[in-house]
Each structure stands twice: as C-alpha cells, then as structure tokens.
C-alpha cells in the first residue's frame, strides 16, 4: 500500500529522487509530468480508484514529480491500472497518468520488479505463443464446434523476438 502523504515526517526529496524523476521523464509517456497541477480528474473518473482506496492516480502523478521511487514501485499500485484510458482522454494537461504508469512499469521491470500475473502472462506468450494453452484439447473441442484448428503460432519466432530485445531475460530475472 502506498504511504500516506500526510505522514508526520513528510517526504524528503534528495538527489536520488530528482535523478529518478529525470529517468522517468526520459521514458516515453512520462515526459509531461511537471505539467500536472493536481486537478484530480484522473482519480475522480478512474473505475478502479472508485473501488480501491489505495489506488489514487493523482497521487501517482504527484509522487512521480517528487521522484518517490520506492513509494511508486512497491506493492500492487502500478499493477492496478486497467488501462482504460479514461484519465488519458480527460487529462486537461495531457499528462496522462495511464502513460506515467506505463513508464513506471518499464522502470520497475529494469529493477527486477513485475507483478506475478504479468510475469506468468509474458512467459505464456514466449512458451506457447498465446496467453492460454491452445493445444490438442482445445482443437478437439473446436473441431466439435465445426471450427478450424487454431493457427500454430510459430513459438520459436515469438521467443526469439522476446529474447533479442532482452525483454525475456529481464522478465525471467524478476
């Protein structure tokens, strides 16, 4: 869970925080974080924030400006965004918290952090070419339904691509 901003000690901003912010702003999607004036439309219209009190898109934007790496990367915070793009569409400054979250996930991965569900999905794609197993059993069922066999996804190509970019090694290292 994210630390409450109202905690007594407040947030100390050190060089490492400014450095993290710089790194974040160099990641595509997070370039405009300094333009956030905390209007809160992102949180107000977020379908997840409506039901999960620890998921506050506006706070994510503020913590990003303050370079609060640990607070941003810990827990489930980054992984609770459903990617619905409501905040993307409605942000008056085109800061777009969905894109900040996307940039933060990329930085998290480089730090060896990924949510187990995301890791499992990525490994499924590399190993099976699909996010689910679509093998003999599924194809027999498909045949019963008069559907053609599912395309064989050339798993070797998919794995080779994910390997070549270094992505798969990063995911496996998490």
């Amino acid at each position: 869970m994210m630390t409450d901003l109202s905690e007594k000690e407040g947030i100390r901003i050190g060089k490492e925080n400014i450095e993290f912010r710089r790194l974040l702003m160099e990641t595509p999607g997070a370039e405009r974080i300094m333009l956030c004036y905390q209007c809160g439309v992102c949180t107000a219209d977020c379908p997840v924030a409506l039901r999960v009190k620890e998921f506050r898109p506006r706070r994510i934007a503020r913590l990003a400006v303050l370079g609060q790496k640990e607070r941003l990367l810990e827990g489930d915070t980054l992984w609770l965004c459903a990617g619905c793009y409501t905040c993307y569409e409605r942000c008056p400054e085109k800061v777009r918290v969905s894109e900040i979250i996307s940039a933060l996930r990329k930085l998290a991965l480089k730090e060896g952090i990924i949510h187990p569900t995301f890791k499992a999905l990525m490994k499924s794609i590399a190993e099976m070419g699909y996010i689910y197993e679509i093998g003999d059993f599924q194809n027999e069922m498909r045949e019963d339904e008069d559907l053609p066999q599912a395309p064989e996804p050339e798993v070797k190509e998919i794995e080779a691509i994910m390997r070549k970019t270094g992505f798969l090694d990063l995911v496996e290292g998490c």
Partner: peptide
Amino acid sequence: MPGSGCCGTTYLETLDHIT
C-alpha cells in the same frame, strides 16, 4: 492467418515498447 499468435497484449505495451 497461418503462424499468427498472441497480439502481445495491452500488458506487454506497458512493459517494453520495442518488444
């Protein structure tokens, strides 16, 4: 589409742009 597989998912978009 012979040889086609997963699109990559919207999750992958958030994890690595080039991949």
